[in-house]
Protein backbone atom coordinates (compact mmCIF):
# COMPACT_ATOMS: atom_id res chain seq x y z
CA UNK A 1 0.00 0.00 0.00
CA UNK A 2 2.98 2.31 0.51
CA UNK A 3 3.29 2.40 -3.27
CA UNK A 4 -0.28 3.66 -3.64
CA UNK A 5 0.26 6.35 -1.04
CA UNK A 6 3.45 7.50 -2.74
CA UNK A 7 1.66 7.74 -6.05
CA UNK A 8 -1.12 9.79 -4.47
CA UNK A 9 1.36 12.09 -2.76
CA UNK A 10 3.25 12.48 -6.03
CA UNK A 11 0.04 13.44 -7.84
CA UNK A 12 -0.78 15.93 -5.09
CA UNK A 13 2.73 17.41 -5.21
CA UNK A 14 2.48 17.80 -8.99
CA UNK A 15 -0.89 19.54 -8.75
CA UNK A 16 0.27 21.92 -6.03
CA UNK A 17 3.68 22.48 -7.64
CA UNK A 18 2.35 23.01 -11.15
CA UNK A 19 -0.22 25.53 -9.93
CA UNK A 20 2.52 27.44 -8.13
CA UNK A 21 4.92 27.22 -11.06
CA UNK A 22 2.55 28.30 -13.80
CA UNK A 23 1.02 31.11 -11.77
CA UNK A 24 4.50 32.23 -10.65
CA UNK A 25 5.60 32.20 -14.28
CA UNK A 26 2.62 34.33 -15.31
CA UNK A 27 2.99 36.81 -12.46
CA UNK A 28 6.74 37.19 -12.93
CA UNK A 29 6.17 38.51 -16.45
CA UNK A 30 4.87 41.75 -14.86
CA UNK A 31 8.26 42.57 -13.40
CA UNK A 32 9.12 46.11 -14.54
CA UNK A 33 5.73 46.70 -16.17
CA UNK A 34 3.33 47.16 -13.23
CA UNK A 35 1.17 50.30 -12.84
CA UNK A 36 3.16 51.66 -9.87
CA UNK A 37 6.58 50.90 -8.47
CA UNK A 38 5.15 49.47 -5.25
CA UNK A 39 3.24 46.91 -7.33
CA UNK A 40 6.39 45.88 -9.20
CA UNK A 41 7.85 45.07 -5.80
CA UNK A 42 4.74 43.38 -4.39
CA UNK A 43 4.13 41.21 -7.47
CA UNK A 44 7.74 40.12 -7.50
CA UNK A 45 7.22 39.01 -3.89
CA UNK A 46 4.19 36.93 -4.82
CA UNK A 47 6.05 35.38 -7.76
CA UNK A 48 9.05 34.65 -5.55
CA UNK A 49 6.87 32.91 -2.98
CA UNK A 50 5.26 30.81 -5.69
CA UNK A 51 8.58 29.82 -7.28
CA UNK A 52 9.90 28.94 -3.82
CA UNK A 53 6.87 26.72 -3.21
CA UNK A 54 7.34 25.17 -6.64
CA UNK A 55 10.84 24.05 -5.66
CA UNK A 56 9.45 22.29 -2.60
CA UNK A 57 6.48 20.59 -4.27
CA UNK A 58 8.26 19.54 -7.44
CA UNK A 59 11.23 18.42 -5.34
CA UNK A 60 8.87 16.11 -3.47
CA UNK A 61 7.32 14.91 -6.75
CA UNK A 62 10.84 14.20 -8.05
CA UNK A 63 11.70 12.22 -4.92
CA UNK A 64 8.63 10.11 -5.62
CA UNK A 65 9.64 9.34 -9.17
CA UNK A 66 8.33 12.23 -11.29
CA UNK A 67 11.82 13.11 -12.54
CA UNK A 68 15.48 13.42 -11.57
CA UNK A 69 14.96 16.68 -9.65
CA UNK A 70 12.61 19.64 -9.39
CA UNK A 71 14.18 21.38 -12.39
CA UNK A 72 13.73 18.38 -14.66
CA UNK A 73 10.11 18.10 -13.56
CA UNK A 74 9.56 21.78 -14.32
CA UNK A 75 11.53 22.11 -17.52
CA UNK A 76 11.35 18.75 -19.27
CA UNK A 77 7.69 17.77 -19.20
CA UNK A 78 5.32 18.54 -22.05
CA UNK A 79 1.91 20.18 -21.62
CA UNK A 80 -0.04 16.92 -21.22
CA UNK A 81 1.97 16.00 -18.14
CA UNK A 82 1.25 19.28 -16.32
CA UNK A 83 -1.42 19.08 -13.61
CA UNK A 84 -2.16 22.75 -12.90
CA UNK A 85 -5.68 24.14 -13.05
CA UNK A 86 -6.73 26.00 -16.19
CA UNK A 87 -7.19 29.18 -14.13
CA UNK A 88 -3.49 29.79 -13.51
CA UNK A 89 -2.50 29.43 -17.16
CA UNK A 90 -4.90 32.18 -18.28
CA UNK A 91 -3.08 35.20 -19.77
CA UNK A 92 -2.15 38.18 -17.61
CA UNK A 93 -4.54 40.50 -19.44
CA UNK A 94 -4.78 43.92 -17.84
CA UNK A 95 -3.74 44.44 -14.24
CA UNK A 96 -7.33 43.81 -13.14
CA UNK A 97 -7.35 40.37 -14.77
CA UNK A 98 -4.05 39.54 -13.11
CA UNK A 99 -5.42 40.54 -9.70
CA UNK A 100 -8.71 38.72 -10.24
CA UNK A 101 -6.92 35.50 -11.30
CA UNK A 102 -4.78 35.82 -8.20
CA UNK A 103 -7.80 36.36 -5.97
CA UNK A 104 -9.70 33.34 -7.35
CA UNK A 105 -6.59 31.23 -6.85
CA UNK A 106 -5.57 32.56 -3.41
CA UNK A 107 -9.08 32.05 -2.03
CA UNK A 108 -8.62 28.33 -2.76
CA UNK A 109 -4.86 28.10 -2.16
CA UNK A 110 -4.85 29.37 1.41
CA UNK A 111 -7.53 27.04 2.84
CA UNK A 112 -6.08 24.18 0.78
CA UNK A 113 -2.64 24.69 2.33
CA UNK A 114 -4.21 25.11 5.73
CA UNK A 115 -5.90 21.73 5.30
CA UNK A 116 -2.69 20.16 4.02
CA UNK A 117 -0.97 21.13 7.27
CA UNK A 118 -2.90 18.18 8.78
CA UNK A 119 -1.91 15.78 6.00
CA UNK A 120 -1.11 12.22 7.05
CA UNK A 121 2.09 12.65 5.05
CA UNK A 122 4.71 14.57 7.05
CA UNK A 123 6.49 15.89 3.95
CA UNK A 124 3.26 17.40 2.63
CA UNK A 125 2.41 18.87 6.03
CA UNK A 126 5.82 20.49 6.27
CA UNK A 127 5.60 22.20 2.87
CA UNK A 128 2.05 23.33 3.63
CA UNK A 129 3.12 24.78 6.98
CA UNK A 130 5.66 27.04 5.30
CA UNK A 131 3.55 27.94 2.27
CA UNK A 132 0.31 28.71 4.13
CA UNK A 133 1.83 31.80 5.75
CA UNK A 134 2.74 33.19 2.35
CA UNK A 135 -0.65 32.30 0.87
CA UNK A 136 -2.45 34.03 3.75
CA UNK A 137 -0.69 37.25 2.82
CA UNK A 138 -1.42 36.78 -0.90
CA UNK A 139 -5.10 36.30 -0.15
CA UNK A 140 -5.29 39.36 2.07
CA UNK A 141 -3.64 41.43 -0.64
CA UNK A 142 -5.66 40.17 -3.61
CA UNK A 143 -8.99 40.35 -1.72
CA UNK A 144 -8.23 43.92 -0.71
CA UNK A 145 -7.52 44.93 -4.31
CA UNK A 146 -10.66 43.23 -5.63
CA UNK A 147 -12.72 45.23 -3.14
CA UNK A 148 -10.96 48.54 -3.75
CA UNK A 149 -11.02 48.30 -7.54
CA UNK A 150 -14.51 46.76 -7.72
CA UNK A 151 -15.87 49.51 -5.48
CA UNK A 152 -13.63 52.11 -7.13
CA UNK A 153 -14.19 54.22 -10.25
CA UNK A 154 -16.68 53.29 -12.99
CA UNK A 155 -13.81 52.14 -15.16
CA UNK A 156 -12.08 50.07 -12.50
CA UNK A 157 -15.39 48.43 -11.60
CA UNK A 158 -16.12 47.60 -15.26
CA UNK A 159 -12.66 46.14 -15.72
CA UNK A 160 -12.90 44.01 -12.59
CA UNK A 161 -16.35 42.74 -13.64
CA UNK A 162 -14.95 41.85 -17.08
CA UNK A 163 -12.08 40.01 -15.44
CA UNK A 164 -14.47 38.11 -13.18
CA UNK A 165 -16.70 37.19 -16.12
CA UNK A 166 -13.72 35.84 -18.04
CA UNK A 167 -12.01 33.99 -15.19
CA UNK A 168 -14.80 32.76 -12.92
CA UNK A 169 -15.64 29.77 -15.16
CA UNK A 170 -12.14 28.44 -14.43
CA UNK A 171 -12.44 28.79 -10.65
CA UNK A 172 -14.70 25.79 -10.14
CA UNK A 173 -12.01 23.33 -11.20
CA UNK A 174 -10.07 24.10 -8.02
CA UNK A 175 -12.86 22.87 -5.77
CA UNK A 176 -14.36 20.11 -7.94
CA UNK A 177 -12.90 16.79 -6.81
CA UNK A 178 -11.88 14.06 -9.21
CA UNK A 179 -10.96 10.46 -8.32
CA UNK A 180 -7.48 11.45 -7.18
CA UNK A 181 -8.85 14.17 -4.91
CA UNK A 182 -11.32 11.72 -3.41
CA UNK A 183 -8.60 9.15 -2.80
CA UNK A 184 -6.33 11.81 -1.27
CA UNK A 185 -9.10 12.89 1.10
CA UNK A 186 -10.02 9.29 2.00
CA UNK A 187 -6.37 8.56 2.88
CA UNK A 188 -6.17 11.67 5.07
CA UNK A 189 -3.50 13.10 2.78
CA UNK A 190 -5.47 16.18 1.70
CA UNK A 191 -8.62 18.04 2.77
CA UNK A 192 -12.04 17.16 1.40
CA UNK A 193 -12.56 19.44 -1.62
CA UNK A 194 -16.36 19.44 -1.27
CA UNK A 195 -16.13 20.99 2.17
CA UNK A 196 -13.40 23.32 1.03
CA UNK A 197 -15.57 24.33 -1.92
CA UNK A 198 -18.40 25.45 0.36
CA UNK A 199 -16.00 27.62 2.29
CA UNK A 200 -14.57 28.93 -1.01
CA UNK A 201 -17.96 29.90 -2.40
CA UNK A 202 -18.92 31.64 0.82
CA UNK A 203 -15.67 33.59 0.89
CA UNK A 204 -16.07 34.66 -2.75
CA UNK A 205 -19.66 35.76 -2.09
CA UNK A 206 -18.56 37.94 0.78
CA UNK A 207 -15.63 39.63 -0.99
CA UNK A 208 -17.38 40.03 -4.35
CA UNK A 209 -20.42 41.54 -2.71
CA UNK A 210 -18.24 44.06 -0.88
CA UNK A 211 -16.58 44.75 -4.24
CA UNK A 212 -20.03 45.28 -5.84
CA UNK A 213 -19.22 42.56 -8.39
CA UNK A 214 -21.38 39.65 -9.54
CA UNK A 215 -20.09 36.19 -10.41
CA UNK A 216 -21.49 35.01 -13.75
CA UNK A 217 -23.61 31.87 -14.17
CA UNK A 218 -22.41 29.10 -16.40
CA UNK A 219 -20.51 25.85 -16.73
CA UNK A 220 -17.23 25.13 -14.99
CA UNK A 221 -14.27 24.84 -17.35
CA UNK A 222 -11.88 22.15 -16.27
CA UNK A 223 -9.32 19.65 -17.49
CA UNK A 224 -5.99 20.80 -16.12
CA UNK A 225 -5.84 18.14 -13.41
CA UNK A 226 -5.98 15.51 -16.17
CA UNK A 227 -3.44 17.36 -18.32
CA UNK A 228 -6.09 18.66 -20.74
CA UNK A 229 -5.06 22.30 -20.90
CA UNK A 230 -6.05 25.39 -22.86
CA UNK A 231 -3.91 26.39 -25.85
CA UNK A 232 -2.11 28.86 -23.59
CA UNK A 233 -0.14 26.07 -21.97
CA UNK A 234 2.06 25.24 -24.94
CA UNK A 235 3.08 28.86 -25.29
CA UNK A 236 3.92 29.16 -21.61
CA UNK A 237 6.16 26.11 -21.89
CA UNK A 238 7.74 27.28 -25.15
CA UNK A 239 8.91 30.36 -23.28
CA UNK A 240 9.72 28.79 -19.92
CA UNK A 241 11.51 25.69 -21.18
CA UNK A 242 13.23 27.21 -24.20
CA UNK A 243 16.78 27.28 -22.86
CA UNK A 244 16.59 23.77 -21.44
CA UNK A 245 15.29 22.45 -24.72
CA UNK A 246 17.75 24.39 -26.92
CA UNK A 247 20.79 23.18 -24.97
CA UNK A 248 19.90 19.65 -23.84
CA UNK A 249 21.98 18.31 -20.98
CA UNK A 250 23.63 21.64 -20.14
CA UNK A 251 23.74 22.82 -16.53
CA UNK A 252 23.17 26.46 -15.63
Amino acid sequence: MAGDTDKLVRDLALRMGDNALILGQRVSAWCGHAPVLEEDIALANVALDLIGQTKLWLGLAADLGAGANADDVAFLRDARAFRNSLLVEQPNGDYGATLMRQFLFDAWHYPMLNGLKDSADARVAEIAEKSAKEAAYHLERSSDFVVRLGDGSDESRARMQDALDALYPFAGELTTPDETDDALAAAGLAPDLNALGEHYDAYLDRVLSEATLTAPEGAVRKGGKAGLHTEEMGHILADMQWLQRAYPGATW
Binding site: S28, C31, L48, F75
Partner: peptide, 29 residues
Protein backbone atom coordinates in the same frame (compact mmCIF):
# COMPACT_ATOMS: atom_id res chain seq x y z
CA UNK B 1 14.49 46.32 -14.54
CA UNK B 2 13.66 45.85 -18.22
CA UNK B 3 16.73 44.22 -19.81
CA UNK B 4 17.00 41.68 -16.99
CA UNK B 5 13.26 41.26 -16.59
CA UNK B 6 13.38 40.15 -20.22
CA UNK B 7 14.87 36.83 -19.03
CA UNK B 8 12.81 36.06 -15.91
CA UNK B 9 10.30 33.87 -17.72
CA UNK B 10 13.14 32.09 -19.55
CA UNK B 11 15.59 31.58 -16.67
CA UNK B 12 17.03 28.07 -17.00
CA UNK B 13 16.40 26.71 -13.48
CA UNK B 14 13.95 27.43 -10.67
CA UNK B 15 16.82 28.73 -8.53
CA UNK B 16 18.08 31.10 -11.25
CA UNK B 17 14.53 32.30 -11.83
CA UNK B 18 14.10 33.10 -8.13
CA UNK B 19 17.49 34.85 -7.94
CA UNK B 20 16.76 36.96 -11.00
CA UNK B 21 13.29 37.89 -9.75
CA UNK B 22 14.76 38.93 -6.42
CA UNK B 23 17.42 40.97 -8.17
CA UNK B 24 14.99 42.85 -10.38
CA UNK B 25 12.84 43.40 -7.31
CA UNK B 26 15.83 44.88 -5.49
CA UNK B 27 16.28 47.31 -8.36
CA UNK B 28 12.69 48.47 -8.02
CA UNK B 29 13.39 48.88 -4.30
Amino acid sequence: QLPEGNWITRAPTLERKAILLAKVQDEAG
